[in-house]
Design a binder for these strands. Structure first.
Lengths: 199, 199
DNA sequence: TTTTATTCTGATCAGTTGATCAGTTTTATT
DNA sequence: AATAAAACTGATCAACTGATCAGAATAAAA
């Protein structure tokens, strides 16, 4: 008995999700239609409905995929560091770098998070446990352990974590040309200023 | 010669804009249609097209209206303060308070800023000089003058302004029940931590 | 080979959208 | 009162939406 008889489904799902990300980046959520995604993925609209139960299901799966990518990228950098200070600096640097390197991913994630709503009409970006929340838990864990080990002084972990997340998010609004000085120094200066706050 | 013969137009425009804000809050941008706005404003879709050149024009005007409201609210609080420290604290407190008091306004503003795009397909939230930018200029002015007067130490004004804006923005994601301790302390703790950064 | 399960296509459908416009009502001017 | 300008209505339209589904193609199993 083999429970993996047909493997095409998973590959096709990812292909559709990647097409969705590109369409979201190019057109924004309001102009993202199943037919645009289908032609970007070089298949038919019917196939999307075959692999996903509907547009909302596709968007949910795309959001999970994007959150997973970001989490993996940041976690890998954080785990290389020994000290909690090093982990925190890596978290901030990687968070900002990810938004620059994988810009289309972050753009697509924003488009979904600000437009898809739960059945109760609550926007995703205001749902307590959305997929990105895992990253927030990692950040709060670093801050808490850093306090316990006396690397950091006393402060409200939740509030400082939010300040850090806000600074990372806003890096998206910076000009993304490689040589623009505003982008170049931002990451480093954010880390400097956060250190002033917690050391 | 009277250049204000027909004044109804302005009043009707504001009525339509206010209806748009309510529909945006209740349904989100993707489910906001001219017919929903029309019935919320108790008029016809034709009238909206009469006063605005199209849906996009209505959204642009709504965004301007919302940015103006926020700016007025915050500026009034800031101008009561003498010291730059006082002005900065007032800016942060008012910014967070506005998002709680005028929640529907901020919700609508987010819906528009993350969905309307310029003719060049650039999302508003990434446009350099969007209407909210005026508030950012006010914030940077406070920080710069505070440095000149030696109230604040040396730091990169642009970066610190972004950190502050990020912290204010994220207050929208906090639970908004009046007695929730997470909201209660947030404003005060943000101010404390920002002070550690700049003093 | 035959059979069965999976994958896929593209035409089709009902519903909604933003916009238009001929015609009506209201308001101001002469 | 007569006229003109402004404000307004609601039916109508083409364009597009997400979803459906009969049937075709492909792959695996028997």
């Amino acid at each position: 008995m083999n429970n993996k008889q047909y493997l095409i489904a998973d590959a096709r799902k990812e292909q559709i999700i990647k097409a969705a990300i590109e369409v979201l980046r190019d057109y924004g959520y309001i102009n993202t239609s199943l037919s645009k995604i289908a032609s970007q993925a070089k298949t038919s609209t019917g196939l999307i409905s075959y692999h996903f139960s509907g547009k909302e299901d596709l968007m949910n799966n795309t959001l999970l995929y994007l959150a997973e990518q970001e989490k993996a990228f940041i976690k890998e950098k954080v785990e290389k560091e020994q000290s909690y200070t090093g982990q925190l600096m890596a978290f901030i640097e990687a968070g900002i770098a990810y938004r620059s390197i994988k810009r289309e991913n972050t753009t697509a994630l924003i488009e979904i998070a600000f437009n898809v709503r739960t059945p109760n009409n609550v926007p995703y970006f205001r749902v307590e446990m959305h997929p990105e929340e895992e990253l927030n838990l990692l950040l709060e864990e670093i801050l808490t352990k850093g306090q316990t080990s006396k690397e950091f002084q006393a402060f409200d972990v939740t509030v400082v974590a939010m300040i850090i997340r806000g600074a990372i998010s806003l890096s998206m609004s910076l000009p993304q040309e490689e040589n623009d000085p505003r982008l170049a120094g931002y990451s480093e200066k954010v880390r400097e200023n956060i250190l002033k706050m917690i050391k």
